[in-house]
Write a protein that binds this DNA or RNA. Structure first.
Lengths: 208, 208
DNA sequence: GTGCTATCTAAGCACCGTCCAGATCGGAGC
DNA sequence: GCTCCGATCTGGACGGTGCTTAGATAGCAC
């Protein structure tokens, strides 16, 4: 009965504010875009004072880093879900790439925060859990496609190339320049598949 | 004799402030990075009041856009210079990609402004001059590699894939994750060549 | 010389990230 | 039960930001 009609569980100090702040950040991100994602806006969204977040995050960049980590986790989830929907190696590889780009397109603001964070740290905020990383997912799928007979070095290079292309496509695919080509191909997904099909030549190299 | 020891040509209002602001922006960018690139910092660097830039640019984003356009022009220059240094098609293709990424690595702050701007506008700030665009440079080079017998559609898709991979690599290549691989390959450039070699399969497709 | 107009400055607005002193309150110890 | 502690949250402040407005300055056509 502190303030008003909030009948929910808001009994004491504030419950789990860290969690609430992350949700608030995502809400602001989706509603107003990355440029509006200020610490004060997040605090406002969560209904606390502008200084409150500092008891849960060292500074703004650490909040963003936490948001980015959750984003990468969700990206990995989307990728493995897409993999699970296909059986043939080549289809799995294609689905993996398409899922990556479509995740970025479905969550553009989040994707931007994710890579802003990665660029600032010179690493993906991805490396935290003990389970398999999203990058490993790519390597495994490419190994399937190649039938297993690939050098670790060639595999690594192909995986990097694929990841780079997917990331590049995620950032560029919305450019107006490509609209006519998309129309010619019959839609966004066909466009993505078409571009991504020109990658991962590893299997065709005879010295692999 | 307005203020002090500036013996140079600073006679009247301010000369060509627009030019001076762009140079100041680049200076701040190189010295302190993208996060320090505020309109006020640029004005400070140029020695004018914080409101002065508004007589030459509508707002901050337009200044950044101008900086980005100059960056894309220089990128194109670096790419065509690299092309001119090679003769064999395959070498030219490789040199083009390497030049792209090395430009980004040599001018990381500028490259970031360039693509921040591009992302915000959903297009490259590249499309202004009447001469050939950087993207066209890629298409031409890929056509050489394929021996000229490619469908326009396949060419376009391969060019996009190549551009995406180069952009992705430009953003990702600095990640710590890849350091061991670079060492194994014997250096940064070998790494770039290795990754980029797994692209542009167009010529190997029989339905081209 | 007299205006006109572009350019530049000074001052101010709202917002930002961040720090600090103090209020609040759940829970440990008695 | 009560006290006290320490974590959590608030209000207020500081310097910095993008941007606007009103007024000063100075090149240029007449």
């Amino acid at each position: 009965m502190t303030t008003a009609a909030v009948a929910e569980s808001k009994p004491y100090h504030h419950g789990d504010l860290r969690r609430a702040l992350l949700d608030a950040a995502e809400a602001v991100l989706v509603r107003e875009g990355p440029s509006a994602l200020s610490l004060r806006a997040v605090a406002r969204e969560a209904g606390v004072s502008p200084a409150a977040p500092y008891h849960h995050f060292k500074d703004k960049s650490e909040l963003l880093r936490a948001v980015a980590m959750e984003g990468f986790a969700r990206l990995k989830l989307a990728m493995s879900s897409a993999l699970a929907r296909e059986t043939a190696p080549e289809e799995r590889r294609s689905a993996l790439g398409v899922a990556y780009v479509e995740f970025a397109q479905a969550n553009p603001a989040l994707y931007r925060v994710m890579y802003d964070c990665a660029r600032n740290a010179d690493q993906m905020p991805d490396e935290h859990g003990e389970d398999v990383s999203a990058f490993q997912l790519v390597k495994d799928t490419l190994t399937e496609v190649a039938g297993g007979q690939v050098s670790e070095l060639d595999l690594e290079l192909t995986a990097i190339a694929s990841w780079c292309a997917a990331h590049g496509l995620a950032e560029i695919s919305k450019f107006e320049k490509f609209k006519p080509l998309k129309d010619a191909l019959g839609g966004e997904r066909a466009f993505l598949q078409g571009v991504l099909a020109h990658l991962g030549v590893m299997a065709q190299r005879k010295d692999g």
